[in-house]
C-alpha cells in the first residue's frame, strides 16, 4: 500500500496537542497490553511533541522527533511503522512467522500466501487473532519484524485450506513508508 509513497505526496505538517499524544498512548496500551507505560514513554516522550504529516489520499503520518511512528488512512486503525515495531519485543504484538522462502517476495511487496505460514519454518497466529486484525510478521531465523499486514483468513482456515492469500501486506521493509524521511 505504501509502495509508491514519496516525498512529493506530503501536503503539510502540523504540530499536535499534548492531549493527543496522551490519548494515543492510552489507546496503544489498551490495544497492546504487554506494552508498559514506561516503555511507551521512552518511544514517545512527553517533552517532544508529536506532529501530523498529511499526505495524498487522506493518509496521515504521525511523527515524533522526525521519526515516523504511525500511519493512518482516513480515521482507521493506526498502522505502526516498522521501526516502532522493532523497538518492542515480539511478545507484545499479535504475530505470525513465515518461512525463509517467503521473505524475498514479501520484501518485493507481495501478499503472504498460506503455504509460507504452514510450512516448516512458519508459525501460525495464535487463536485469539481474528480476521482483519493487524498482524506483525516475523521470519524464520530472523529477529526483527519484516512487515505489517492484515489477516485475511483465520488460523484455522490457513491450516485447513492452505491456499490463497492469508495476510494482506500493508507495510514492509524497504517500501515507500520505510524509505520516507521527514
Amino acid at each position: 500500500m505504501f509502495k509508491k509513497l514519496t516525498k512529493q505526496d506530503i501536503k503539510g505538517e502540523s504540530q499536535l496537542k499534548s492531549s493527543f499524544s496522551r490519548n494515543l498512548k492510552q489507546e496503544l496500551i489498551a490495544k497492546y497490553p504487554s506494552i508498559t507505560a514506561d516503555e511507551l514513554e521512552e518511544v514517545i516522550p512527553k517533552k517532544k511533541p508529536l506532529s501530523l504529516v498529511k499526505c495524498e489520499d487522506r493518509l496521515s503520518l504521525y511523527t515524533c522527533d522526525n521519526q515516523i511512528l504511525f500511519a493512518q488512512f482516513y480515521t482507521d486503525e493506526y498502522i505502526p511503522h516498522l521501526k516502532f515495531v522493532h523497538k518492542f519485543s515480539r511478545g507484545c504484538f499479535k504475530s505470525l512467522q513465515v518461512d525463509k522462502g517467503a521473505i524475498k517476495f514479501i520484501l518485493g511487496g507481495s501478499d503472504i500466501m498460506c503455504p509460507g505460514i504452514t510450512s516448516k519454518g512458519g508459525i501460525l497466529p495464535s487463536d485469539d487473532v481474528k480476521v482483519n486484525d493487524l498482524v506483525f510478521v516475523y521470519a524464520e531465523g530472523k529477529e526483527s519484524a519484516l512487515c505489517v499486514g492484515k489477516l485475511k483468513m483465520s488460523g484455522e482456515d490457513i491450516k485447513n485450506q492452505n491456499k490463497g492469500i492469508a495476510v494482506e501486506v500493508i507495510h514492509y521493509l524497504g517500501d515507500g513508508l520505510w524509505n520516507m524521511k521527514i
Partner: peptide
Amino acid sequence: MALVETLYCKICTFPVDFC
C-alpha cells in the same frame, strides 16, 4: 521489560539480519 534495540544497516537501512 526494556526496549529492544535493533541495529540498522547504514547502507540499506534494513535491520542487519535482513541485509
